[in-house]
């Protein structure tokens, strides 16, 4: 694994190894001294062409906990906003000696362009590209699901295990969601059954080739499939209503909430063990009610915490670890001193 561009590039073994590594990282984060020396002297650049404070500080925290030097390069107020190309920005970072570039970009495929171009030597980590992929989000989602639902209902160590047999419903704006695409690929690779639930206008043409089911109705999915996890996607308000470019996907927020919002009634349809997830930031009252967001089965805040551990694992494996899909993984303990 030289770059992390898409969860579609991960096989089951590699994905499980990332989750196991993340578990090891999480274990260190309950210590008084959270910092590990592993990436001392290495430089991680957070190259954010799109505002995302949450994802940026998650990566920043992860890199700092591994003792890497972190440079935050935000497109806002920089040369990029003056028309500098991706190429020249990348060449600049290369000249400064970036060992890893964590890139967030509004254009789908921009991380691929960076990785393919030869402009930078370092590892490229996709932190969200357009409506394409957000692989570390899917990894933290898978990590969270595994922690709660694998190994005697979350009471035993799930190390080495995948998500075989679990059912996950992903609900909302699939069309514009990089989270949905990443999760369909990864959760399926890990053996879970994914059902996408959305109004037909928010399902992409071509979805029939995806390894998942698609439903236009949330209630029967909750009642009949009894999902183990429900993942609510953020619905942007500009998608609704008529007129404006990019709008008109559904008539009103109220109609969306009636059809696809997770409220108290729907929450009650879920099996007792089921968890409620959301990648954030939430639109309370639109795709998720306060009842659901604040319920004991919501793991939304924990997803954020797990994000740091997963990103530590990814940076560690790309910069210090030896991962090959064919096997022969280096033991995490050997390099980090994690016991």
């Amino acid at each position: 694994m030289r770059h992390l561009l898409s969860t579609g590039d991960l096989d089951r073994e590699t994905a499980v190894h990332v989750l196991d590594t993340a578990a090891g990282m999480a274990a260190t984060q309950s210590r008084e001294i959270k910092k590990l020396p592993t990436l001392r002297g290495r430089t991680v650049v957070n190259l954010f062409f799109e505002d995302s404070t949450r994802t940026r500080i998650s990566f920043e925290t992860a890199a700092k906990r591994l003792s890497a030097d972190v440079i935050n390069f935000s497109a806002k107020g920089s040369s990029v906003s003056k028309g500098e190309s991706l190429k020249d920005t990348a060449l600049t970072l290369q000249a400064m000696g970036a060992d890893a570039v964590v890139i967030r970009h509004s254009a789908s495929g921009a991380p691929h362009t960076l990785a393919r171009s030869g402009w930078v030597d370092g590892a490229v980590v996709n932190a969200g590209d357009g409506t394409h992929q957000h692989p570390t989000q899917a990894l933290l989602d898978a990590y969270t699901i595994r922690r709660h639902l694998v190994g005697a209902g979350g009471t035993a160590d799930p190390a080495g295990r995948d998500l075989a047999g679990l059912r996950v419903a992903v609900v909302g704006d699939v069309l514009h969601s990089r989270v949905a695409r990443s999760n369909v690929d990864l959760l399926t690779t890990l053996g879970a059954e994914v059902t996408l639930v959305a109004p037909p206008t928010l399902v992409p043409v071509g979805v029939e080739a995806w390894p998942c089911r698609v439903s236009y109705h949330l209630d029967p999915v909750l009642a009949d499939q009894r999902p183990d996890a429900v993942m609510m996607l953020r619905v942007q308000r500009e998608r609704m209503g008529a007129g404006a470019a990019g709008g008109g996907y559904f008539p009103t927020p109220l109609e969306y909430t009636r059809g696809y919002g997770l409220d108290a009634r729907r929450l009650a349809l879920l099996p007792d063990h089921a968890i409620v997830m959301h990648p954030g930031p939430m639109n309370r009252g639109l795709e998720i009610s306060a009842d659901a967001a604040d319920s004991p089965r919501a793991v939304i805040v924990e997803q954020v915490a797990n994000g740091v551990a997963v990103r530590m694992a990814v940076l560690y494996l790309l910069l210090a670890g030896e991962v090959s899909p064919a096997g022969g993984h280096e033991r995490l303990d050997d390099r980090t001193g994690i016991a």
Binding site: S108, G109, R181, V205, V207, W210, A245
Partner: peptide
């Protein structure tokens, strides 16, 4: 075809590029 980037179909759905139907 507002913002369209490539043919709308299986590949555009996967790549997350706006479709040109």
């Amino acid at each position: 075809t507002v913002g369209a980037q490539m043919h709308e179909g299986v590949v555009s759905a996967e790549l997350g590029l706006a479709g040109w139907p």
